[in-house]
Write a protein that binds this DNA or RNA. Structure first.
Lengths: 131, 131
DNA sequence: TTAAAGATTACCGCAAGGGTAAGGTCAAGC
DNA sequence: GCTTGACCTTACCCTTGCGGTAATCTTTAA
């Protein structure tokens, strides 16, 4: 199957597939005309990659996951460690974003948002008094 | 004041200050020896930048905020729009991360995490049955 | 005097592809 | 046979926000 169909069937982009080949994450075969030729097995791998990426894993982490996936003598312990590590990372990001949200809400709430130049947002960012 | 002190006093890095100059966000003066020379006003601007960045604004958004800050005939409406836009963006990210967290927790919970190769995480990523 | 500390510019690198150019290939319609 | 359009190829630059390193001044302290 050619690249655009593989992209479509996996939920990835053509650019991404070519990129994954360039970093040796997934090497499809080639047809006689030089076109990339994705097998059914390649497609399953692409779907694996897509799912892992959508959960937040980096491409390098996906590489590790794929290796485990393809290794029959793996220990589920190792896969779980990757997931727990990512989970922790996600929770850290969540905390940071919640803090940002609080501050942004606070800023927005104090600003009239009218035609006047008087603006609590800018005052605060400038280090103005808090309350 | 020289660059390292300005960095220290603003909570930014020396590299960041040089970068901000290179993109014309803040142009400090120069001493006779060619060293950058940050004034007190520059320092306040740097602190403004630091606060805005820490709340999640991109450098280009900070540029807009600075412009408003320095424009006496601004309308607070414009500043508020920037904050509300950023708030929306942060909330979108929060939703995405919460979804990732749910999936990751689900994955972790189903995996024994022992010495066996049997692993629900890898099965799921491979498109295995759900429940 | 000399060595350490701090400054300068310049360039390469990251993540994860997106965008575009210049060109080969393939199938359909005339 | 010919052309057109859709699809494929490689190659190279762009993005964000700096971090790291090198080679080269300047200043400061011992």
């Amino acid at each position: 199957m050619n690249i655009s169909r593989a992209a479509q069937q996996s939920g990835l982009t053509v650019k991404a597939l070519r990129y994954y080949e360039s970093i040796h994450l997934l090497q499809p075969g080639r047809s006689a005309n030089g076109y990339r030729d994705y097998s059914e097995r390649d497609l399953e791998t692409l779907r694996f990659i897509q799912r892992a990426r959508s959960v937040g894993f980096s491409v390098e982490e996906v590489r590790d996951l794929l290796e485990l996936h393809q290794n029959p003598s793996r220990r589920s312990h190792d896969a779980k460690l990757l997931v727990l590590g990512k989970l922790e990372h996600v929770e850290t990001q969540l905390r940071n974003l919640r803090e940002m949200r609080t501050t942004l809400r606070d800023l927005a709430q104090r600003c009239a948002g009218d035609e006047s130049p008087e603006c609590a947002i800018l005052d605060r960012l400038a280090g103005g008094e808090h309350d």
